[in-house]
Simulated assay, not measured.
Amino acid sequence: MTVILAAGDHFVTNDLLRDRLRPVAPDAAFRELTLPWPVEPFGPVAEVREASGTEDQLIEALDGVDVCVTQMAPLTERILAASPALRLFCVSRGGPVNANLDAATRHGVAVTFAPGRNATATAEHTVALMLAAARRIPATHADLAGGTWRGDYYRYESVGPELAGSTVGIVGYGAIGSRVARIVRGFGARVLVADPFADAAAVAPDELVGLDELMNRSAFVTVHARAAPGTEGLISRELIGLMPAGGVLVNCARGSLVDYDAVCDALDEGRLFGAAFDVYPVEPLPADSRLPRTPGVVLTPHLAGASRQTAHNAAGMVAAEVGHHLAGRPLLHCANPEVRNR
C-alpha cells in the first residue's frame, strides 16, 4: 500500500491536500504533519532555503512514506538518507527551493513543483501596488484614520500618474509578467518587455526592448524576473537613474533583484514618485530598514501570491502529480526528470 505524507501548513492546509488527494489515491494510507508557516517565517534548514519545519520532524514523519506532498517542508541530504522508502516529493510552489535536488537525484527521489500556481494572484497584487503607490492610497488612508483631512494631496506636485496612457515596463515575461501585461493593457497602458528568454511570438516586436531602453521609457516598471546567479541587483542604481522623473517602481518577484537603497535615494531626491514592494533581501524586514521610513513607499509582507485560489491550485497540482506517479505516467513538472528516466 502506498503511504502518503501531507505536510501542509496554514495556507496550503492538510484539509485541502487531503481533499484533492483522495480521488487520485483512494487506496493510499495518509499521514499528516502541519508546519508552522506562515505563522512562523520560513528560513534556511540545513542546506536548503525557504523551508518550514525541522529535519528531525520530517525524518520522523517520513518513516515508511512513499510520497510526500508539501509546500514548505525541507528535503535535505540528511532527511533523504533517513527516508529510504521515499520516491516522490511534490512541492506546491513555483520552484522547489526547499529541496536539495542533487541529493534527491542521488537517492532516486523525483521532485515536482507547481509553476504558475499563484500567477494570477501575484499579477493582480502587482497592479494593486502600482495603483496604491501612484494614488498614495496607504498614506491618505493613514491620515484619515488618524483624524487628518489633507487637501494638499491634491496639489499638482503631490499627485501621481495614471496607468491609462502610461508606458508600463515589465522585466520578466513569464506566467506573472504576461498576466500583468494583459491587465494594464485593459487600463489603456502601453507595454514594454525586457526578457532575453521571452517567447518572441507572445510579444509584439515593438514591445520587446533592452532593459536600459525599458527603464528609460517607462513611467511604471514592475519586476517579474527569477532570482538566479548574476541577477543580484539587476535593477541597479544606474538603471533606476534612467527612469523618467515621477516614475513608479514595483517588485513582487525577489528582493535580491533590486537595489533598495538606490530606490530610497531616488524617492528622497524626488526623482521617483513612488515605489511598492512585496519582497525584500531580508525577511522579515530588519528594524533598521530604510523602506518603512521613506515617503512614497508602499509595503506588503510577501503575500502577493496569497489568495484562496492559489491554495486550491497548489493542492490540485501536487495531487495531479501523485495521480500520474501512481498510474505510471510521466510527471507534469519534474525538476529532476533524470530520476524517472533511469
Rank of each mutant, 00 (worst) to 15 (best):
I170V: 14
T294L: 06
L303N: 15
I176Q: 06
S166A: 11
Y260A: 07
G116S: 11
L331P: 04
T294Q: 12
T120S: 10
D63I: 00
N341K: 11
C90Y: 00
P330T: 06
P301R: 03
L208Y: 01
T231H: 03
R155P: 03
A175K: 13
P138S: 00
G210C: 06
T294D: 01
V184Y: 12
Q309G: 03
L208S: 02
A142H: 06
P196E: 07
R226K: 08
A139M: 04
R117T: 04
L21M: 06
A201C: 05
A132Q: 07
I176D: 04
N216D: 11
R290M: 07
E77T: 15
A73D: 06
G246M: 01
A266W: 14
L332F: 01
E162I: 00
E207H: 10
A228W: 07
D278S: 08
M243L: 14
D15N: 04
G305M: 03
M1G: 14
L272R: 08
R155Q: 07
P138H: 02
R226D: 08
L75G: 00
Q309I: 04
E60S: 15
L242H: 05
A204K: 15
L21K: 06
E338Q: 14
G64I: 02
P281H: 08
P23Q: 06
H224R: 10
V67P: 00
V91L: 05
P205N: 02
F273H: 15
P330Q: 08
A227P: 00
A103R: 04
E213W: 03
G95D: 07
A253I: 01
R237Y: 10
L332Q: 12
V209D: 10
M72N: 12
G316T: 02
T231Y: 04
A194Q: 02
V248K: 11
G53M: 05
V250Y: 04
A25N: 05
V127C: 02
F273W: 09
R49E: 07
L267A: 13
R185V: 02
S83M: 08
L332E: 14
L131M: 12
G8F: 14
P74E: 10
L257D: 07
H107F: 10
G255C: 14
V203E: 07
G147D: 07
H141L: 15
A73Y: 05
T112W: 02
